[in-house]
């Protein structure tokens, strides 16, 4: 049971404030939605959790540990941040194999996650020929490689066909039910409404709502209505 704790993250990129005291906790056992306008700081927060950006202030920890301190960090947290981060002439399977080497995992684990992601056949082709949907599936496979208790997914539904969307929804829900902490950033409110039990709404680098999905629906009729109401008048990109 690992929680994600984000505490007072601040970050400036030149003159613009990307994060302005971002604080929230993601608990295991259900999918948590992470929503907000473009430029609200979602991606930056996710990158900071896995140590790719350094905050000016604040901390992000997984079960009390900073990501970069963990040996074999992908066994603690799997992340899908950028589905295009691939070498185009390396096969999908080999992409997972080097990741497996880096986490001291066997190649058998690579074949497990490849079939879990529905890429058993395509895995031996060069990744440069993959559609966006296939890249998303490969990214999910990479995130699942270390069988981590924490999953971070940035826009996982992008580029998926309808069957893919259903697959992704069932997969994420199942992963959460196994007791994992699952944080999913998305613009698709209807998807989140069906899948997430909790939602964190951010704007201008800070949390503006952190509530159960059922509570928000009770108050605003739908997640989409709640989102629009909460973020009304808050510009995303400054």
């Amino acid at each position: 049971m690992t929680t994600i704790e984000v505490n007072g993250l601040r970050k400036r990129f030149g003159p613009s404030v990307a994060l302005d005291g971002m604080t929230f906790v993601v608990r295991p056992g259900h999918v948590t939605g992470f929503v907000g306008p473009n430029g609200a700081g979602k991606s930056t927060t996710l990158r900071m959790i896995v140590g790719l950006d350094r905050p000016d202030a604040g901390t992000a920890t997984l079960g009390g540990h900073r990501y970069a301190e963990l040996p074999c960090p992908m066994r603690h947290s799997g992340a899908l941040l950028d589905p295009h981060a691939l070498h185009p002439s390396r096969s999908g399977r080999n992409h997972l194999r080097w990741l497996a080497r880096s986490q001291d995992l066997p190649d058998s684990r690579v074949d497990e996650v490849l079939s879990q992601a529905g890429l058993a056949a395509a895995g031996r082709r060069a990744a440069g020929g993959y559609s966006l949907g296939m890249r998303q599936r490969l990214g999910v496979a990479a995130a699942l490689l270390g069988d981590p208790p924490v999953l971070l997914l940035d826009e996982p539904f992008n580029g998926l066909d309808p069957a893919g969307i259903v697959w992704m929804r069932d997969l994420l829900r199942g992963l959460a039910e196994d007791g994992r902490s699952v944080l999913v950033s998305s613009h698709l409110m209807s998807e989140l409404q069906d899948m997430a039990a909790h939602v964190i709404v951010v704007a201008q680098g800070r949390v503006i709502a952190d509530a159960g999905v059922d509570d928000l629906i009770g108050e605003y009729a739908s997640l989409e209505a709640a989102y629009l109401e909460l973020t009304a008048g808050v510009g995303g990109i400054r």
Binding site: R47, V50, G51, L52, Y67, A68, P73, M74, A79, L81, D82, H84, A85, L86, H87, P88, L99, S102, Q103, A142
Partner: peptide
């Protein structure tokens, strides 16, 4: 250079944050 051209460096450093 390919690590940067294909933004793979993020994946690399997420897997091996050193």
């Amino acid at each position: 250079t390919t690590e940067f051209r294909h933004r793979m460096i993020s994946t690399t450093l997420a897997a091996m944050p050193h």
